[in-house]
């Protein structure tokens, strides 16, 4: 059974309360079309489960086959440095076919980030090590494709359409979901 290593920590991008009954971790790639589909599924799960779900995203760019994926991940981190990770994350998934450097800068500008700082972060690859650290943690955790999900620390090996993930999540946290729900 493949387990998340390291567990969710302060350096992660965390949407929700890490002590929620369900912590869903995704390893994803901004240029991966399957991850694009999974993004919608995660948003629907967040809406449905609200505070019962905590969502964490880690980078796993398949950079060889997705040449824009690594810089896009760095762009999300650079936005994160300005406190806007999730907004950039959403924009990237909504615009998976427009991930050239000029596009990324356009998103930063649209979000009214400090564009100079953003560009500087991309140019110096300030967050490449952070992205690589996520990739390394994915390797240790048994990531076997993108997206790969972990539910409460265990790799989810089934399908990841809404019904499958919802079923796996509610199964993993059945008693608590009912108590709080």
């Amino acid at each position: 059974m493949s387990r998340l290593r390291p567990p969710v920590h302060e350096g992660d991008h965390i949407a929700g309360d890490p002590s929620a009954p369900v912590v869903l971790v995704e390893y994803g790639d901004y240029e991966c079309p399957f991850c694009g589909r999974a993004h919608g599924v995660v948003e629907a799960l967040q809406q449905t489960l609200a505070e019962r779900l905590c969502f964490v995203f880690r980078h796993f760019p398949l950079a060889t086959v997705h040449p824009h994926a690594a810089l896009a991940a760095e762009a999300a981190e650079a936005a994160g440095a300005q406190g806007r990770f999730w907004q950039m994350h959403n924009l990237l998934y909504e615009n998976q076919t427009a991930l050239e450097p000029a596009d990324l800068i356009g998103y930063a500008s649209m979000m009214q980030l400090d564009v100079d700082a953003f560009v500087d972060d991309l140019r110096t690859h300030r967050f490449l090590e952070k992205v690589r650290a996520d990739l390394h943690s994915g390797a240790l955790s048994g990531v076997n494709g993108t997206p790969t999900f972990f539910i409460n620390g265990l790799r989810h090996d089934g399908a990841w359409d809404f019904d499958s993930l919802f079923g796996a999540i509610t199964g993993a946290a059945a008693p608590e979901m009912h108590e709080r729900g």
Binding site: C32, P33, F34, T64, V65
Partner: peptide, 14 residues
């Protein structure tokens, strides 16, 4: 097999 879920493509990154 499909690229994003291909075992060899994942190992290639690792």
């Amino acid at each position: 097999s499909p690229v994003c879920s291909d075992q060899m493509a994942v190992y290639n990154e690792l």
